[in-house]
């Protein structure tokens, strides 16, 4: 409840292609908290996540987003990343010719700022890969180029575990994963999760919430959060679907 929450989303409106798709979302994520953001396809979850990360197609037209009490809206996406924000993409980009290792190396170097601190990189990378059951061969593969849906999601979580951001937005990291992969990836998320960081877990299935326990659950419909509460909301959703929330007036709990 304190205003020093790690991430504060304050009445955020997002426009894409001239259309308002997020219509006033307010949400605080404190240290050690895992918030689940649930909603049907097209409700605006990815638009919100992308806009927070600074995606050029998603404009925040009003409201504010604060990380550690500081507004990030004037910051370029790379500055937001260095400040501690991370987005695991729903549809990660393929970048032919750039290896997973090279990409991650550059991302870490941008934080450490010193080649000398990169000496242990291979070791760190392989350890993180082992934990996520990712074959070392992937280090030399071109980023997401020809990867299966599940492989892409694992690589996103691999990045999370190496970059150790303060706040992670995980956009449908569970989709496209079979049950074994879901377990491995969830364990990866749980290993990352600590009292020092926060997670916004975006999903439209409650499935992943069996493995990654949320402290709070929010339901998003048509660009608005229509209900917030404890984990029981996810179960309720599971049982009766999103329709029951449709008519519920907006009740925002922070």
């Amino acid at each position: 409840m304190s205003n020093t929450a790690l991430l504060q989303i304050k009445d955020v409106h997002v426009e894409v292609e001239g259309k308002e798709v997020v219509k006033g979302v307010t949400l605080d994520i404190g240290k050690g908290e895992v918030h689940a953001l649930m909603g049907k396809n097209g409700s605006g979850k990815s638009s919100l996540s992308n806009a927070i990360m600074g995606h050029p197609s998603y404009a925040i037209t009003s409201g504010d987003v604060l990380l550690d009490g500081k507004s990030i809206l004037e910051m370029a996406p790379d500055e937001r990343s260095i400040a501690g924000l991370f987005l695991a993409f729903q549809y990660p980009q393929a970048v032919p010719g750039v290896t997973v290792a090279n990409f991650l190396r550059s991302a870490l170097l941008a934080r450490r700022g010193d080649e000398k601190l990169m000496r242990t990189f291979r070791k760190e990378l392989y350890a993180a890969m082992d934990a996520l059951e990712v074959d070392h061969e992937f280090a030399g593969r071109y980023l997401n180029d020809g990867f299966s849906g599940g492989e892409k999601k694992r690589i996103e979580i691999l990045q999370l575990s190496l970059l150790q951001p303060k706040l992670a937005l995980l956009d449908e990291t569970d989709s496209g994963l079979d049950i074994d992969a879901l377990k491995t990836v969830s364990e990866g998320i749980n290993r990352y999760s600590s009292d020092e960081n926060g997670i916004l877990l975006v999903t439209h299935y409650q499935r992943i919430l069996d493995y990654v326990k949320p402290t709070k659950v929010h339901v998003m419909i048509a660009g608005k959060i229509v209900k917030s509460g404890g984990p029981e909301i996810a179960l309720e959703l599971e049982k009766s679907g999103y329709e029951t929330f449709q008519s519920t007036p907006v009740t925002v709990g922070a």
Binding site: F89, V95, Q159
Partner: peptide, 11 residues
């Protein structure tokens, strides 16, 4: 693609 790099802190 550029945004993907930026989102990882790469200038």
């Amino acid at each position: 693609q550029v945004f993907y790099f930026l989102s990882r802190g790469i200038p």
